[in-house]
Amino acid sequence: MFQNIKINKISNSLTEIITGNFNARIKFHDYNKSVRNLIINLNRLIDKFQEVAAVNKQYEDDRKKMVSNISHDLRTPLTAMLGYVEMLQTDASLSLNEKKEYLNVIETKGEVLRNLIDEFFSLSKIDSDDINFEFKKIDITEVTRQCILSFLKDFEAKEITPIIKIPEKEVYITADEKSINRILQNIIGNSLKYGISGKVIGISLKENKDSVTIDIWDKGKGIKKEDLPYIFERLYTGEKSRNSNLKGSGIGLTIVKKLVEKHNGKIEVESLPYEKTTFKITFFKKLRNM
């Protein structure tokens, strides 16, 4: 009879937890050693279940936020495009120059929309491991130089002075060249977009014994200390730490971090607003754990 009471107490505690009180635990009484060990393991199992439930809740919250943000990011340029299309169709008083101007706006918004969709698609492919990486020996100095050359017109147009420090000699790492190029393109593009007020962008490459470090820095508005831990989160737009008028999709840096991690590398950020914001990327010469 007394044993049945003990079992009922344990059962009632489990029922309380199953029905939603994840903070409840099975309490110890005058049970024998075997029952106490069972209760200890049950409480450990409940702890693990509570951790999984918390992760699932966070994942669901993030998913809802992501869907909401994606919808907003896609709707904004699409709404503008449709508005200009309607004006072209209904306003007979528009001059030829005005029509050309509206078509240019539609083209620009269409390009923004296409880039957003491309970024969402790329992130989805990385998340699902649906990308074939071609890891091979590449000259990281040459890849970096070619990437910088692709930005020369942008530097000139925005009156930004590039400070380049790259070794003359060849430096080889094992990597997927397309991914390395995209990482550099995204970070330099980010500095161009948000560091324009500083009028200078620095790109340096340093060879270490087993690794290569690339620093990309600017002297723009920078990132507040409290925002630094979140800048690689998907759809984080940095509106608090960067100019909200220049706010992007928040996908670019997420893609960068994931691609760096695919190379078993690491990326770090330091920022003193209006002094220096530095993205530091480390690639190992030989891939680890692969």
Rank of each mutant, 00 (worst) to 15 (best):
N4C: 09
I5M: 09
N8F: 11
N12R: 05
T15W: 04
I18A: 13
G20K: 10
N23P: 01
I26Q: 06
F28Y: 15
V35W: 01
L38M: 13
L38R: 00
L42V: 10
N43V: 07
N43F: 03
L45Y: 10
Q50I: 01
V52Q: 08
V55D: 13
K57V: 11
E60C: 02
D62M: 10
M66V: 00
S68K: 15
H72N: 06
L74F: 13
M81F: 04
G83E: 11
V85Q: 14
S93M: 06
S93K: 12
L96C: 01
L103E: 12
V105P: 02
I106E: 09
I106C: 03
E107D: 05
E107R: 13
T108L: 04
G110D: 09
F120T: 12
D127Y: 02
S128K: 05
D129S: 14
I131M: 03
F135T: 08
K137Y: 03
I138T: 06
I140Y: 00
V143N: 01
T144R: 07
T144D: 06
T144H: 09
C147G: 02
S150Y: 03
F151E: 04
K153M: 14
F155V: 11
E159Q: 13
P162M: 09
I164M: 07
K165E: 15
I166E: 05
P167C: 12
K169Q: 14
K169I: 13
E170K: 14
Y172M: 08
A175H: 05
K178G: 02
S179E: 06
I187K: 02
G195K: 04
G198L: 05
I201K: 03
G202D: 04
G202E: 09
S204M: 03
L205Y: 01
N208K: 13
S211Y: 11
I214T: 03
I214F: 09
D215M: 11
W217D: 14
D227W: 00
L228D: 10
E233H: 10
R234G: 08
L235V: 01
L235P: 00
Y236G: 00
T237G: 11
K240S: 12
S241F: 03
R242N: 13
G248T: 13
I251E: 00
K258V: 04
L259K: 14
V260K: 09
N264H: 15
G265H: 03
I267C: 08
S271V: 14
P273Y: 10
P273W: 06
Y274S: 02
Y274W: 14
K276P: 03
K276I: 06
T278Q: 07
T278F: 05
F284T: 08
K285D: 05
K286Y: 08
N289R: 07
